[in-house]
Design a protein around this nucleic acid. Sequence first.
DNA 1: GACGCTGAGACACAGTGTGTCTTATCGTCT
DNA 2: AGACGATAAGACACACTGTGTCTCAGCGTC
Lengths: 214, 214
Amino acid sequence: MCLIVSDVTSDTPAPLSAIEQRVLDAALECSARWGFARVTIDDIARSSGVSRASIYRFFPGGKEVLFESLRVRELEAFFTELRTEVAASESLEDLMVRSVVTATRCLRNDAHLASMLASEPGEALGQLTVDGLPRIIRMASMTLIPLARPFMAPHDASRVIDLLARLTISYFLAPSEDVDLTDEADARRFLAPVLAVAAGAGSEHPITPDRSSR
Amino acid sequence: MCLIVSDVTSDTPAPLSAIEQRVLDAALECSARWGFARVTIDDIARSSGVSRASIYRFFPGGKEVLFESLRVRELEAFFTELRTEVAASESLEDLMVRSVVTATRCLRNDAHLASMLASEPGEALGQLTVDGLPRIIRMASMTLIPLARPFMAPHDASRVIDLLARLTISYFLAPSEDVDLTDEADARRFLAPVLAVAAGAGSEHPITPDRSSR
DNA sequence: GACGCTGAGACACAGTGTGTCTTATCGTCT
DNA sequence: AGACGATAAGACACACTGTGTCTCAGCGTC
């Protein structure tokens, strides 16, 4: 609990300077071209025009810290765009459907993500599932809970968003024949029951009944 | 002189086995994805399903030898395709124009070449100009001199082919606003004078007058 | 059963990227 | 003009990783 709070507050620790942005841009470009594992700090330095020394100054800890910053930045950009797309929704269903559709479309149109998935599936998948998923869900919650406020209590919204985020990523990574989540009507048809169940069940009993006995 | 002969005869030293082809395929794929400098033998081994030990067995000398074989194979494939495209030409001009046009189109459609040029201009350019150009010209001569035989003496054809190969590569690397060598009519209009001059001058006096005095 | 071929792994070595320095250079502010 | 902060450039030791060469085991073929 404490961890989560400190995590959330430290999510926007410092607005990045222009030079840091340039470094991250270069890192994004390089990793898209060569894959995360094959990029060197030197590549990023050359590509950004920022000296290696300065990169270490800005991102003490080197590559790991740098790419962590990059992931945070990209994630924030992603959800900032998502928010502007869905802010005007006038019902819970609208909000959720449009969020899923917009997110899926963004993911599908992301050339960098596609390169990463192609050239380094391990790393990229990790950032979409095990390692990165909690953060993604946290960002999704921070973005969407306020927008869901008029329709739903934060606690219930949180559970629905968690579910939808997982579904979105799963259907992005392994599209189903049955539903195309980039198509709004299709997505609405598919998501309506899910939303109904999740929303309905929410207030009654916890979504994860205690199974620690088995 | 002696060198050239030995070079030509050693150009087709051994037909590659299926497993060697697989290795080269993998090398091509890997280098297209990551760039020549970033590919490891391990990548190629994994990608081809051939063990590292075997790769060194087939290409003693490692990466350098392997990629040399790859370049030879690609070059041969290129000119084999070119020959089938232009074999039916019924005049010298036809032959030369169609060769240039076909070659230019092939170069422009070559995704691997494009990747290499994008990610590692130095290496790729070297193979198209300083280091690789003599070989390209040699292959072009071997391919086209026989086809030009009905219209032109080998010695003259050799000089014309040399010239056209250089022009083709130059216009591929730095296209001109004035002429589009992928367009046959355009190329014909552009090349006709060149062909006339080169062919005409050939029989009269050497194309490289002795300037050793300066 | 002998043979050839391939994969798997160990090995020393060289090369290169890393992360941390120090120093030089630039632009800005006072 | 001088002082200051920020950045580039380069040196450095270190660790890691890719290389090239082994040896050995497994497999199929003759």
